[in-house]
Write a protein that binds this DNA or RNA. Structure first.
Lengths: 97, 97
DNA sequence: ACCATAGGCAAGTCGTCACTTGCCTATCAA
DNA sequence: TTGATAGGCAAGTGACGACTTGCCTATGGT
């Protein structure tokens, strides 16, 4: 489970998507595509971004809601709050996946 | 720079190495190999672990000191403390590498 | 001096991941 | 109903990453 969070955070494009969702929640796929192209000079295909969002959703970092033909995406920071404290103080080690 | 931290944390074996160093600082390469084999059933080559340690050192998560023919490794949690707070509250976005 | 120990370097293999291309479905507006 | 918009599915490609194998250097004990 936290395995998916680390994998999701490993890609710089996905971290930029999280940045964008942190700045404005509830963006659609095309909105995110535009933002990446405009603000970050990331010329990605719609499918590429869609796959990134799927990874982020699997990790629980993004939740999505469908409205009509639009699908809006929201950031969820909850999975982030536990993963790093693992090494910050003496902690029971987690079984590796 | 924080790019390297995320990449280093992406691998489950490297996270286990961090667990071991969190439990006992200053282990040599062979000690870490033994620990991974004994406690975590990870039968890795010495070179594999060595390469993992190199990645962790590049990320700044591990610092090493040479003494004679031994090389001891210590955990440094400092790079961990900034990376996640990036999304926890409204934050100036970082330029992507 | 010898040999075992601790570690490093470099090339090669194999799997996974990011990304694309092509086609298909669904919703809304005219 | 037609067409444009928003999104999904699946197979293919190319690159990077984890790991191994083989050989080489250096330190220390006897």
């Amino acid at each position: 489970m936290s395995e998916d969070v680390f994998k999701a955070l490993a890609d710089p494009t996905r971290r930029t998507i999280l940045d964008e969702l942190a700045e404005r929640d509830g963006q659609s796929l095309f909105e995110i595509c535009s933002r990446l192209a405009m603000k970050h000079e990331l010329a990605l295909t719609r499918q590429a971004v869609s796959q990134h969002l799927a990874v982020l959703e699997t990790a629980g970092l993004v939740v999505s809601r469908r409205e009509g033909r639009y699908k809006f995406h929201d950031l969820d920071t909850q999975p982030l709050e536990q993963i790093v404290t693992r090494w910050l103080r003496p902690h029971p080690p987690e079984s590796t996946p």
